[in-house]
Simulated assay, not measured.
Amino acid sequence: MTTPPFDPPSEKDVATVSAQLGRPARNVIGIAARCVCGAPTVVATKPRLEDGTPFPTLYYLSHPAATAAMSALEATQVMAEFQELLPNDDSLRQQYESAHKTYISDREGIEVVPELAGVSAGGMPVRVKCLHALAGHALAAGPGVNPIGDLALERGRWSPFVCECIDYEATA
């Protein structure tokens, strides 16, 4: 198995993610995307939690400003708009299917969890269900991999190129 390329988490990373989430971070195996200042933005989480629970969300958006932006965007009903694009745009639908397969491949490169067979995140490959998961995947994988995640990042009121971090060390 091949592990997707992400940085292993340092103790400082885990403390920062815990401060970002407002609770202890669980089963973090990597930092899949970082803010321009270096703080974690997306964590990679074990496909099976320590208690044995299957956890399909490999790429978990942790940055509070990014999370807030995706929540605000979801509140505008944009998911329904994005959902309507899928049956009418063959290229977008194929890219979204490919993103789904990439996500599963990344997760299975870490651990195959039979209960998660064929399941990715965010509603892929046929639904738009969670912009947090789709944006997290887009940030982790880079532009052009997850088209709906890319659209969410374009439409959201947050940019991965502008630091909106607080002093996480002071809050940890």
Rank of each mutant, 00 (worst) to 15 (best):
V78P: 03
A121H: 00
P114D: 13
T102C: 01
G149P: 10
M79W: 07
P64F: 08
I166W: 05
P143R: 15
A72R: 15
F82C: 04
D106R: 06
P143M: 10
H100E: 06
V43F: 01
L73H: 07
S120M: 03
P114L: 06
E81I: 14
R127E: 09
S91P: 02
S120W: 00
L73A: 08
H132T: 07
L134S: 03
Y103K: 09
G144C: 10
C165M: 11
V145G: 05
V78E: 10
Y96E: 10
A65Y: 02
I110C: 10
L116E: 01
L86Q: 04
Y59I: 08
L86V: 09
V145D: 07
M79C: 12
L49T: 03
A141Y: 11
P143L: 09
V162M: 01
E108H: 13
D106T: 04
R127K: 13
A133P: 02
E97D: 12
E84N: 11
L58T: 04
S71W: 04
G142H: 14
M79H: 13
P64A: 14
G122H: 03
M70D: 06
V145P: 05
D51N: 14
M70Q: 07
M70A: 08
A121I: 05
M79L: 13
E97Y: 12
G123F: 04
P143H: 12
A133W: 04
C165L: 10
E115D: 15
T53M: 15
D89H: 14
W158G: 00
H137D: 06
E164G: 09
A39N: 15
S159P: 01
G149Q: 06
T53G: 05
H100A: 04
Q95N: 12
R48M: 14
L61F: 11
Q83K: 14
H132L: 15
R48D: 00
P125I: 02
L153G: 02
H137I: 01
V162H: 00
A75T: 08
L61S: 12
N146C: 12
P40I: 09
S98L: 09
